[in-house]
Design a protein around this nucleic acid. Structure first.
Lengths: 193, 193
DNA sequence: CGCATGCATTGAACTAGGACAAGAAATGAA
DNA sequence: TTCATTTCTTGTCCTAGTTCAATGCATGCG
């Protein structure tokens, strides 16, 4: 049950069994059906979720009413609106929604503080997770500015090979920042290479 | 001398005077003339720099040979290629260059570890800095995807009012992800509102 | 089973922004 | 002060991607 998340959190920091026990005792398991919105715009995001199973999307709605997907999170990924809500005390501008039936381990800011108090080494692990998150976001910014839609799509396929089977095309278009119609045109052009 | 950086690091975590003394003793002061490249693509970024005075830009060169500016850092900002280089052990894809004569406090990864060992509370402060950095990058991604060039420019002026006086227009265009010519056209259109 | 709603595809007309070129203005070095 | 280099502006043409249909295709659901 805990092996996935323990492996994940131990990726850059090595923990003793008793530290992992403390960690595991603070996690809250949650099973959530598909199409459930875990976080609405305007709410405070009071969780960080580790995806044990399933797929979620994090998105916002722009000034013209368009959904823009910021992140897909599948097995072994973390999802939260940590950057805006927690510590900043600002309501979130994003939605987090399950796309499939999901299982999570959840963490509230309070239990996270409790964890840091009981086992300070986790502060470091979460800093490194944050850093990786930043690297991914920066990479995405890089791609968004510098690549054509076709390049972005090919890179997406390369980077998330399973996701294109699991989620609807128009979600992928939204993630890539292009219209669903244009993605369709790109796909037909690629198909007849 | 240290008041600026101490104020900055104390923004979200409160430190005792002796902790700040340890911190300050580990900082390396550096004065650098304008147009100096502090980090080249392909190098390991082995510093985090706090800008005491001056202005730097962080940029990469895309597949078509275009410079794209990721960040301007002015007084009281941190700059580094922390996300890619440090901990990931990958050579950097970015350049960091001074645009004005600059003064910095520098930090190597090793002295940072030393700091965390001597005063663990800094681990927390740096995690929160990282988090804010992530928030800014996410906001920038948000804007890049969802806003028109004019909107991005107006928001830039609003957000960095002094910067448009300090740096060349074509750098701002590069930061906004648009051509210098198009920025010029936007400016004339705005001028005759 | 049939129906409705959402999803993907295709085409035609449109637009934001880019590429290129050439001149004007500003900056800076000797 | 002069000359050179960089920066900014303006115009023309061009293209990647959008918008708005219309149509066929899957689905899930009573």
């Amino acid at each position: 049950m805990y092996s996935q998340i323990n492996k994940n959190i131990s990726r850059y920091v090595t923990f003793k069994p008793e530290e992992l026990e403390i960690f595991n005792s603070l996690l809250e398991y949650k099973s959530v059906p598909k199409k459930t919105i875990l976080l609405h715009e305007g709410e405070m995001c009071n969780f960080e979720a580790f995806v044990i199973k399933g797929c979620v999307r994090k998105y916002y709605i722009d000034a013209n009413g368009f959904e823009v997907i910021l992140q897909f999170a599948i097995e072994n990924a973390w999802v939260s609106d940590i950057s805006f809500s927690i510590y900043e005390d600002k309501p979130s501008r994003v939605y987090i929604e399950t796309l499939e039936d999901c299982e999570f381990f959840m963490f509230s800011p309070d239990t996270k503080e409790e964890l840091f108090a009981k086992a300070p080494k986790f502060e470091r692990a979460f800093r490194i997770l944050m850093q990786r998150n930043l690297a991914v976001t920066q990479e995405r910014l890089f791609n968004t500015i510098s690549k054509t839609a076709t390049e972005k799509y090919l890179e997406f396929l390369d980077h998330y090979p399973t996701l294109s089977q699991r989620v609807a095309q128009h979600y992928i278009a939204s993630y890539l920042g292009i219209s669903a119609e244009f993605l369709s045109k790109i796909r037909t052009k690629i198909a007849k290479h």
